[in-house]
Design a protein around this nucleic acid. Structure first.
Length: 587
RNA sequence: GACCUGGUAGCUCAGCUGGUUAGAGCAUCUCACUUUUAAUGAGAGGGUCCUGGGUUCGAGUCCCAGCCGGGUCACCA
């Protein structure tokens, strides 16, 4: 329930399809018979569909609730399917068993006429098997729980498992995810897997004594990553705030404060392009553990991913597109230098910035003056190497100027203790031995500032409070960020991020609510005609006045006849009077 | 942001070089039918062909602009 209720608007004038009008008429018909189409009382169930079918025994009394999803009516008996959160089960309705007395209206009218596919019903009955052996429930009592006035996309699955009339349009599926979830059962499974993965991560981390924390989403300095932020404004402080692009710097502050293991499922926001691997808001799991280094973090990560694959699939090797990916640890560890040497034939150790720029150009990579050494290496790796790593692989030891928050490598000057985990050619995790030398961190931020002055609009901001925190001392720490959405994609064999987010970002939909504001009072249109004017295509008084009276007259009476409206026909005089009324009204 | 591609009934989709009243399957409505399962048989209704301009005797179809998707690329995770 929302805390504040927006101004109520009525949409009585909304244009309805024929099927919607029929369903609304059924709502009224139910009420006329004393049946509340939206009853208030709870309905308790004893069973759910799939689990009941799994342990099926005949002649058990059961109560279930769900949506009516298909109906096969054969005179005095019908088969139907009830869908609950587990799946579907067949129900059998026999007129004389549902209505043992004289009154057969529960079957003849309520079930056959006033119920529609998509309605929520509750049933009570006994289990049995049909002649063909289908586990079914013979219904002895039927309760209307909620009437649907919009028809669901109807789809049917035949014996071979082919789906007919599938609801496949991505736009409709993402905008109306509720419909997608009702009619496409696999969609639900993806999100159940997502939930299972997140639960598993919590279990594993909590068992190790790490603390789940919450840190600010609204930040005055968007730190911890290189990305363009969303900006918003706080009225009371009269200051700009940014939606976080990362939570890294806050989690490190908590390590400074004495926590030895903290993690957060961080919803991050980046004001950048959208495509099938990018949504403006996305979830990163960040974990920071004190007294650890990146070698330890690699082991922790491969063990976690193995457990996740096990939790979701019950095995380590899972299908992903045209490949099979094996999440069983240990994973290959390849240094960035070796990766580039292997796939681009260039030894980055031998090259300075100018040499790298030349190497990039030789490989057909466009460069510009704003790109420093780190950026050039990143380009080289991104275009030449990344896509080769299908099986989980740790790419280690990144050059220091592309890793401003990472500790310098213990024995390779110019490199840092950092790794990214690649799966299926895509980065899913990024981890460091965290830089805890406050003076070096300050120097690295200043280097970023120089990059920014060269025109790199992704260079990081300097967060002075974070530097102050480091100056109080941070223990050696290893941290990791895992892209949860991408991880879910990989674990559920999905190729687009929109498939693992319930409500991916879409351009706002515009609703034609002109009818909701229609006001024909100035014309003196009779109340019982107002809705029909809108349905007949007149969305405002202006629409009427812009049309000739004779035409309005004919269109409305035509509409009345077509829809068999139980109201008197309009005379031309009546309609002409509306124009005169409008004139008097304005003058 | 660039390029390619699409928008026709509640859903999935046909609709040719522009030409009578825009079609199909499922869904809906009416009738028949007591163990069906993509139930079946007979009949009926249902459309702002995304929006707005233009060309034309005539536009779902051609042209222009716009709106909303999808794909590829750029940027990024």
């Amino acid at each position: 329930m929302a805390l504040s209720t927006p101004r109520l608007r009525t949409f009585e004038h909304m244009i309805r399809s024929e099927q919607e009008r029929q369903r609304i008429a059924s709502v009224d018909a139910l009420r006329a018979r004393g049946i509340d189409p939206y009853p208030a009382s709870a309905f308790s169930v004893t069973h759910h569909s799939t689990s009941l079918k799994k342990t099926f025994e005949e002649d058990v009394q059961v109560t279930l609730a769900g949506r009516l999803m298909s109906r096969r009516i054969m005179g005095k008996a019908s088969f139907a399917e009830l869908q609950d959160h587990e799946g579907r089960i067949q129900i059998y309705l026999n007129r004389d068993e549902l209505c043992p007395g004289e009154d057969k209206s529960m079957y003849n009218d309520v079930f056959k006429k006033f119920l529609d596919l998509g309605d929520f019903i509750g049933i009570e009955g006994n289990t049995f098997r049909t002649q063909v052996g289908e586990p079914s429930i013979k219904v002895t009592a039927l309760t209307v729980l909620s009437k649907a006035i919009r028809p669901l996309p109807d789809l049917k699955t035949d014996d071979e498992g082919n789906v007919h009339g599938a609801f496949t349009d991505p736009e409709l599926r993402y905008r109306q995810r509720y419909v997608d979830l009702v009619v496409n059962p696999n969609v639900k499974n993806t999100f159940i897997a997502r939930s299972a993965m997140i639960r598993k991560i919590r279990d594993v981390f909590d068992a190790r004594g790490w603390t789940e924390v919450d840190t600010p989403v609204l930040q005055s300095i968007p730190g911890g990553a290189a990305a363009r932020p969303f900006v918003t404004h706080h009225n009371a402080l009269n200051t700009s705030l940014y939606l976080r692009i990362a939570n890294e710097l806050y989690l490190k502050r908590l390590i400074v404060g004495g926590f030895e293991g903290v993690y957060e499922f961080s919803r991050n926001f980046r004001n950048e392009g959208m495509d099938r691997t990018h949504n403006p808001e996305f979830t990163v799991l960040e974990l920071y553990v004190a007294y650890k280094d990146y070698h330890w973090m690699m082991e922790t990560t491969e063990n976690l991913f193995g457990e996740l694959a096990q939790a979701v699939h019950g095995k380590m090797e899972i299908p992903l597109g045209e490949h099979k990916v094996n999440f069983a640890p240990p994973y290959a560890r390849v240094t960035m230098r070796d990766a580039i040497l292997e796939h681009a034939g260039v030894d980055i150790n031998d090259l300075d910035e100018a040499g790298l720029r030349k190497a990039c150009e030789n490989q057909g990579i466009e460069t510009d003056d704003s790109m420093g050494r780190g950026k050039l290496i990143d380009e080289l790796f991104g275009t030449k190497c990344e896509h080769h790593y299908i099986q989980p692989t740790f790419i280690t030891d990144y050059p220091s100027d592309m890793s401003p928050l990472t500790k310098a490598h213990r024995d390779k000057p110019g490199y840092t203790e950092r790794f990214e985990l690649l799966v299926n050619g895509t980065e899913v995790a990024n981890a460091y031995s965290e830089l805890n030398d406050p003076l070096e961190q300050r120097a690295r931020f200043e280097d970023q500032l120089k990059l920014s002055e060269r025109g790199d609009d992704e260079a990081m901001f300097i967060d002075h409070d974070f530097l102050r925190a480091l100056e109080y001392g941070m223990p050696p720490t290893s941290g990791i960020g895992i892209g949860i959405d991408r991880l879910v994609m990989m674990m559920t064999n999905q190729t687009s991020i929109q498939e693992v987010l319930f409500f991916p970002q879409m351009r706002p939909e515009s609703f034609d609510t002109a009818g909701g504001d229609a006001d024909f009072s100035a014309l003196g249109v009779p109340k019982h005609w107002e809705d029909h004017l809108v349905s007949a295509g007149f969305k405002s008084a202006r629409d009427v006045l812009d049309t000739k009276p004779t035409q309005v007259h004919q269109r409305l009476n035509g509409y009345r006849k077509k829809n068999k409206l139980d109201i008197p026909a309009l005379s031309l005089e009546e309609v002409s009077a509306w124009y005169a009324n409008a004139e008097n009204h304005t003058s």
